[in-house]
Design a protein around this nucleic acid. Structure first.
Lengths: 337, 337
DNA sequence: CCCGCACGGTATATCGATAAACCAGGTGGT
DNA sequence: ACCACCTGGTTTATCGATATACCGTGCGGG
């Protein structure tokens, strides 16, 4: 920058003012500076600016894994909303381990950004309670979090209930929840969704059979596929499957086919997340739509509030879910049409 | 940091030395400093460190879209390799537009990182030729690039040829290339893969029918699905489809089913990319595996070379492809087994 | 005629860390 | 006895931009 200043015959500060579109610079001087700038191919040093001004113009999204479709769709959505506002999004992977999430959350890293969207799965209440980040932060996700954080989550229980009710209405009676886990030390996505499943079954007078809650480790398609295949081949009777995520449900459809069962005739399947691909696999996957756009809008609103005036009272927002019916479920039995 | 120094009764520099594990600090002093550090909850300021030292410890991956599975799988792979080496990966989305790619490439942004992996699709040869980034950079992708860049790409032509040959061997005669574009101002992924398709057909004595090269805009599943459905319903005869990507191929399978055709009996389908989901959709998608791991290894090796000693001669690496056969294609007709 | 203020711009201190030079005291070799 | 060198530090300058205070000049109002 001092090169530019010298070449243009002005002071450092004037160059800075020109580059930041600040007033108090004559039109002529401004022009001359701009000329010199692109003659020398000068580009501002963001590290220095950040050191002095404290702003970076970038927001970070921290997700457990890049290659879980839910997160990559989320990232794309957020980036698309942020870009027109002149904010840059960078995405980091925390690896879903508590260790790596903590290190991603290290204040040092967070300082780098004007705001952080954290989709944590490995951290529990206590971890979050110990940390006092001084960066605007919004938590996305399902675990319990201290009140002082802003937070957006989906209607997990409601969604799973809707999905299960739909399966019941469509005639399913032995409904498994693949990836569901009824009791867990710390409640998380899989717990809440299993809870919705249990509620719906009880409401329908079907008591939830614990052997129909099939836990998973990684919630990957491959894992889901082999899990359901093995159970069915081992004699488990099912006529409905609620996958705790769409990826799990996609795995379930593949596993059921492996076992010689046909979707939706023999077994009906519902997922959760309404991924873009879900419309196109098999007969089309019936899925719970978590209201992606609304979630993103809420999260960014909360983030912006914090970024603008530092003193906002924390909000916990729950997005509205809706069931999207496709070919992996049949028609409701008492549908007269 | 000066607070820490004062509280520990040492100089700034000693604190810095402790924090960076440098020698020349007594064990006792080191301990005392560390105590004070976590008593005060001090965290180093990365912006300042970066300003002074020039290093950031982070590498950036710039992709067109987060929500194209190919890129999210790539990102996850790279992050997994980098993490154990103490390097942090952040991913940015360029939006696949030339404008936004250029702005992502603005030197100012690039300066922020120790290295950049750029998966460009919007930039052409001339754009890249005009730019002279002084950050280590490796290009991933298919377009032509100036020699001075390091670059890793896949064997597009070869892969598409393999795939098409396989379709021919399995009895297909009217093979469409969905997403393929035979002539284009700047060659890109779709062009190269269409080229492989044409080569294989010619080698088999089947002249490539231009009406069987069906271009796409976005290469999304939905677009691919409706494109193939419309063509088939419009009377186009096909018994094989090469999707230029797996997402396109997945769309193709759905579209063919829409049109009442069965895969692989009526029409065989092959994709390109070997996504993780591809194994699990429909009868399993036969696909060209681009050698993900090898690509990542090459790219990171090239990046590291540049990061270590500034003077390496640019390399252009082509990764090896291999066909993975699954249920969306039949058995070769002259398979005696 | 003098005061006050807007305009266009400059000088300086500063953000927080680190590289480099420097320094005191002890130790071993010759 | 003297020099060289290691150990465990400290001091100082610096990275590049920006916030803040400041300074002439010209002009309108009282």
């Amino acid at each position: 920058m001092s090169d530019v200043a010298r070449a243009a015959g002005v002071s450092l500060m004037t160059v800075s003012n020109v580059l930041n579109g600040r007033p108090n610079v004559g039109a002529e001087t401004r022009l001359r500076v701009l000329e010199v700038v692109d003659e020398l191919g000068y580009e501002i040093n963001l590290a220095a600016r950040r050191l002095r001004s404290g702003r970076t113009g970038t927001v970070s999204l921290i997700v457990p894994r890049f290659d879980h479709q839910y997160y990559s769709e989320l990232a794309a959505r957020i980036s698309d909303v942020l870009a027109p506002e002149g904010l840059h999004l960078v995405v980091e992977q925390s690896g879903a381990s508590r260790e790596r999430e903590l290190s991603a959350l290290s204040l040092a890293r967070l300082q780098q950004y004007d705001g952080v969207l954290l989709s944590a799965v490995g951290l529990d209440f206590q971890d979050l309670d110990r940390i006092h980040p001084d960066v605007p932060i919004v938590l996305l996700g399902e675990q319990d979090v201290p009140d002082r954080y802003h937070r957006v989550k989906m209607g997990n229980v409601t969604g799973a209930r809707l999905a299960t009710e739909h399966l019941v209405e469509c005639g399913a009676r032995r409904i498994a929840v693949l990836g569901g886990r009824l009791e867990a030390p710390h409640p998380e996505m899989a717990t809440y969704r299993a809870r919705g499943w249990a509620q719906a079954l009880e409401a329908a007078g079907l008591s939830p059979d614990p052997s129909l809650a099939i836990p998973l480790e990684s919630f990957s398609i491959a894992e889901a596929r082999s899990a359901i295949r093995e159970r069915v081949q081992g004699g488990l009777e099912v006529d409905g499957v609620l996958g705790v995520t769409d990826e799990v449900a996609i795995g379930a459809m593949a596993g059921l086919r492996d076992a010689g069962l046909v979707v939706p005739e023999d077994v009906q399947v519902v997922g959760f997340d309404n991924l873009r691909v879900s419309e196109h696999v098999g007969p089309g996957l019936t899925s719970v739509d978590p209201g992606h756009d609304a979630m993103v809008a809420h999260a960014l609103r909360l983030l912006r509030q914090q970024m603008d005036n530092k003193g906002t009272t924390p909000e916990h927002v729950v997005s509205e879910v809706a069931l999207v019916v496709r070919g992996s479920t049949r028609r409701p039995v008492n549908d007269r049409k």
